[in-house]
Nucleic acid binder design. Structure first.
Lengths: 197, 197
DNA sequence: CCCGTTGTTGTACGATCGTCCAACAAGCTT
DNA sequence: AAGCTTGTTGGACGATCGTACAACAACGGG
């Protein structure tokens, strides 16, 4: 009559648990502190299990980035839906939520940095980045189109807005004291004013 | 009659040589491939010398970032000077040069990423980032002021332009095929049009 | 209840990491 | 030419890394 030494769970659930553990390690220790053992401890499993589910740390980091990015995108979508039917209000909600504490978080940035550090050297990861960036831009294009922007201008406008948001988000994470989330939101919304009018 | 086993050079020159070697290693192997030994081989010295000049890899990466950032800033300043006296032409030169091949270079990005990965965890490096970012923004504010922008608007405008340039530059390095340097320059210059008019 | 499947463990292995320091030698001074 | 300063070497050290693999045990089907 003793407690089981471990629990068996289905592969997909285990994969997700490892991904979430990796995200926590990245948030706590940064890109340099991520390792098979640290993730295993965080997930409460043995080190060997990490290698069993992922061919290497890089694959796990890539999967973690994909998962966190999807979570962020879901948060943004939810905020857009909550903003109601007015197109411009939806766009503003997208912008404001981008700088909300849960997203403009230095700990979240470390996941991006760990992923970015792999993009240049690994073609497969570069392809993943291209794909996720295209998806993010497509959502932005849809929001801009709903505001009446002609299709011929949407591509460039989405690239511009995406870059502005990324740049503000990045600096907000790296130097939180330099300017506030409200200021970042105001800058971005003002930029949208000039784009849409 | 045999060649000397090594050359003694003055500490400042050796420090610079190590910094340049670190930059080359970062460009070639990325943030994950940087190590004391790799840098020592690249600089043609023994591993012990790296530790002798820098308290650790992190300090060397920080010094390398400072050096590369200064080089980039100098390139931008030179381009601005070469653009002549017209304020708007100087601003355009700043923007265009930001996306020139020597600056919007994936290999250069790895230096930034290696540095960024240290910002969150190390307060001293966060302070260095704040300082260098403030300097970069001050240069931008001066260029905007010369174009007739009132001082009360310069801060926000510089933050906005800096973020847009950073975001475009980042994406240009990560996904070179998505849009061109010319397109990035056109987007940025168009943004400046709306700001200055 | 037992048995087979397979998710999981835990360790051993070689490689590589950053750090350290005593010994060496290059080059200036005398 | 000899001595001295000090930049430089190069290996030793313990820690940690990713990987691999044989043994184990949890859990469902019989």
């Amino acid at each position: 009559m003793k407690a089981p030494a471990f629990r068996r769970i289905e592969p997909d659930a285990r994969r997700l648990a490892l991904i979430e553990a990796c995200a926590r390690v990245l948030a706590r220790a940064g890109a340099a502190g991520v390792s098979v053992r640290a993730i295993a401890v965080e997930a409460g499993v043995s080190p060997g299990l990490v290698s069993h589910y992922f061919p290497g740390i890089e694959a796990l980091v890539a999967a973690t980035y994909a998962h966190v990015e999807a979570t962020v995108a879901e948060t943004l979508d939810r905020a857009v839906e909550a903003a109601g039917p007015e197109p411009r209000a939806r766009l503003d909600a997208f912008v404001t939520t981008t700088f909300a504490p849960t997203i403009a978080d230095p700990q979240l940035l470390s996941t991006w940095i760990a992923f970015w550090s792999l993009v240049t050297a690994r073609p497969a990861i570069a392809a993943q980045h291209d794909e996720q960036y295209a998806g993010s831009r497509a959502r932005l294009e849809a929001l801009l189109g709903a505001c009446g922007m002609p299709e011929s201008e949407r591509r460039r406008a989405a690239i511009a807005v995406s870059a502005l948001l990324d740049g503000l988000w990045l600096e907000l994470c790296l130097s939180p004291g330099c300017f506030s989330a409200e200021e970042a939101g105001a800058i971005a919304r003002r930029f949208l004013d000039t784009l849409i009018s």
